[in-house]
Simulated scan of single mutants.
Amino acid sequence: MTGWLEGYTALITGGGSGIGAAVARRYVAEGASVVIMGRGKDRLDNVVATSADPSRMHAIEGDVRSVADLERTVSETVRIFGTLDVLVPNAGMWDFQRQLTKLTGTELSETFDELFSVNVKGYLLACHAAWPELVKSRGSIVMTLSNASLYVNGGGPIYTASKHACLGLMRELAYELAPKVRVNGVACGGMNTDLRGPATLDLDGRSIATSFANKSSESPRPPLPLWDSSTDPTDFTGSYVLLASREQAGPITGHAISVDGGMGVRGFRSDAGGDNL
Score class of each variant (00 low, 15 high):
residue 58 H to K: 08
residue 32 A to I: 04
residue 235 D to H: 12
residue 100 L to G: 04
residue 232 D to C: 03
residue 56 R to F: 04
residue 75 S to W: 02
residue 266 R to T: 09
residue 144 T to Q: 04
residue 234 T to H: 08
residue 144 T to C: 09
residue 189 G to P: 00
residue 21 A to C: 05
residue 171 R to Y: 07
residue 60 I to D: 02
residue 112 F to H: 13
residue 126 A to I: 08
residue 223 P to T: 03
residue 172 E to M: 12
residue 36 I to C: 11
residue 40 G to W: 10
residue 232 D to M: 02
residue 253 T to G: 08
residue 203 L to I: 07
residue 262 G to M: 01
residue 74 V to D: 07
residue 59 A to Y: 08
residue 185 G to D: 09
residue 98 R to Y: 13
residue 7 G to I: 06
residue 79 R to E: 15
residue 217 S to V: 13
residue 82 G to K: 14
residue 151 Y to C: 09
residue 273 G to K: 06
residue 168 G to P: 02
residue 129 A to N: 08
residue 220 P to K: 12
residue 207 S to I: 01
residue 27 Y to N: 03
residue 213 A to P: 00
residue 100 L to T: 14
residue 230 S to Y: 02
residue 197 G to A: 05
residue 217 S to P: 00
residue 270 S to H: 10
residue 156 G to W: 04
residue 138 R to G: 12
residue 177 L to I: 06
residue 210 T to A: 12
residue 276 N to M: 11
residue 214 N to T: 05
residue 138 R to Y: 12
residue 141 I to H: 07
residue 264 G to N: 00
residue 263 M to H: 08
residue 182 R to Q: 00
residue 135 V to P: 00
residue 198 P to S: 10
residue 109 S to A: 15
residue 164 H to T: 00
residue 268 F to A: 13
residue 45 D to N: 15
residue 65 R to K: 15
residue 148 A to H: 03
residue 204 D to C: 06
residue 135 V to D: 00
residue 247 E to S: 13
residue 216 S to D: 08
residue 206 R to V: 14
residue 10 A to R: 01
residue 107 E to D: 13
residue 14 G to M: 05
residue 130 A to D: 12
residue 135 V to C: 08
residue 208 I to A: 09
residue 198 P to W: 06
residue 155 G to I: 06
residue 187 A to E: 02
residue 22 A to R: 04
residue 231 T to V: 15
residue 275 D to R: 14
residue 62 G to D: 13
residue 230 S to F: 04
residue 30 E to W: 03
residue 186 V to M: 03
residue 253 T to S: 15
residue 109 S to F: 09
residue 99 Q to N: 06
residue 259 V to C: 03
residue 25 R to M: 04
residue 119 N to Q: 05
residue 29 A to N: 09
residue 173 L to I: 00
residue 129 A to W: 08
residue 96 F to K: 00
residue 89 P to A: 14
residue 202 D to K: 15
residue 174 A to P: 07
residue 136 K to M: 04
residue 28 V to N: 02
residue 17 S to P: 00
residue 69 D to P: 08
residue 141 I to P: 05
residue 107 E to K: 10
residue 137 S to K: 12
residue 124 L to M: 14
residue 202 D to N: 15
residue 115 L to I: 04
residue 37 M to Y: 02
residue 89 P to I: 13
residue 116 F to V: 08
residue 192 N to D: 14
residue 229 S to N: 12
residue 118 V to Y: 00
